[in-house]
Simulated scan of single mutants.
Amino acid sequence: MAGSSLPRRALGRRLRGYRVEAEKSQLAAGLHIEMSPQSIGRMEDGQKVKICTSQIRDLLDLYRVPNPSDERNEIFMLWQEVRDQALAAKLAGTAKGWWQAYTDQYEPHFDHYLGLEAVATHLTTHQVLLLPGLLQTGDYRRALSLVGDPTVSPAALERRLELAAHRRVRLADPSFRADVLLSEAVLRQTPGGRSVMVEQLRHLLEMIEASTNLSIRVVPSDAGSHLGLLTQSFTLLEFPPLASHLAEPPIVYVEGYDGSLYLERTDMIDRHRRAILDIQRVALTEHNTVQCIQQIVKEYGE
């Protein structure tokens, strides 16, 4: 999932839709164009596979997509966009995403998320226990890494901190916006001890003051009933239009200890949008959030 992940994902999603509508299995599709069903599945998931224009045309024939038709034109526009971006990435020496240099330092399921985060234009996250990676200081990240793997080597730990620092660069992009909703409990967890958390909270205050594309709001522990109590932690990622002017649907990412969920169905996206509105309803204003963080810093400093 490098820079071309969005058109690949859009192409794969549309081809899967046509296959399901035609009532064809991945095995049947693979046999038709001499590919494995696993490769068909990876392609439909937006992953890079070896496939040529004639094979895509054969798939559309198998799926009984009319020729000529607007549907075919859309598929081939996406395919051309995939090829153009792949060529541009190759010429620029960026065929792989920067994060893939650190694949030995994160779980395999997180690779896809990093690719999506790198191309998203708007991120809205609700967190109930820990700060999102984009806001973590080095010492906060170090403490969490040592909890997860107390035997991690110093060299590996430094690479994890490099990865975290590289992710934070995303916030410097004026075309990117992050809206962060934090349970008050997040501010009262102290991985690494109170001194680490004081540094982390002061970092949040600095970011709030300096950033024009970042909003941080705290949900107080006495906020009462709201949908965030049911959704728990999640992140909604939204994307720019493709070069073909097709809209790329958002994704809700839910991270777990042993894996992650990527929710794309329209009804699921709508439910999480409603949850965001309800959480924002009970969250402190940005001004009051600053006062809340300052008060906790004062408490920890005593």
Rank of each mutant, 00 (worst) to 15 (best):
P249W: 12
R177A: 04
E199H: 13
D179K: 08
S215V: 08
R188M: 12
T235S: 15
S195P: 00
F234Q: 10
E199P: 11
M207Q: 10
F239M: 03
E238C: 07
E209M: 10
A223V: 03
T235N: 12
S183H: 14
V218S: 00
Q189E: 13
V218M: 03
P241F: 06
R202P: 12
E238R: 11
E184M: 07
I208H: 00
T235F: 15
G193D: 02
L227W: 09
Q200K: 05
M197E: 09
I216W: 03
L242G: 11
R188C: 10
E209T: 06
T235R: 14
L205Y: 09
L201H: 04
E209S: 15
S175M: 13
S221Y: 12
G193H: 01
S183V: 07
T212E: 15
F234E: 15
H245L: 15
S225T: 09
E206A: 11
L181R: 00
S175W: 11
A185W: 02
S215F: 03
L201S: 06
P241R: 08
M207D: 04
L229R: 14
R188G: 11
Q200P: 08
I216G: 10
V180I: 13
R188I: 11
P240K: 02
S215R: 09
P220N: 07
V219G: 01
E199M: 10
V196Q: 02
L201A: 02
E184D: 06
M207Y: 04
F234I: 01
E238A: 13
F176T: 07
M207I: 01
V186I: 04
H245T: 12
L181G: 08
L182V: 01
L205M: 07
P220D: 04
E184P: 02
F239L: 06
P241S: 11
E199C: 13
R202E: 14
G193Q: 01
V219S: 04
F234T: 02
T231P: 12
A178T: 01
S195E: 10
M197G: 15
P240M: 04
L214N: 11
G228M: 10
D179W: 15
E238T: 04
A247K: 09
F234P: 11
L236H: 09
V198Y: 09
L214R: 06
E238D: 14
Q189I: 00
R188S: 08
Q200M: 07
S211G: 13
Q200V: 12
H226K: 04
R194I: 10
E199T: 14
V186T: 07
F239D: 02
A185D: 06
G224S: 08
L214P: 11
S183E: 15
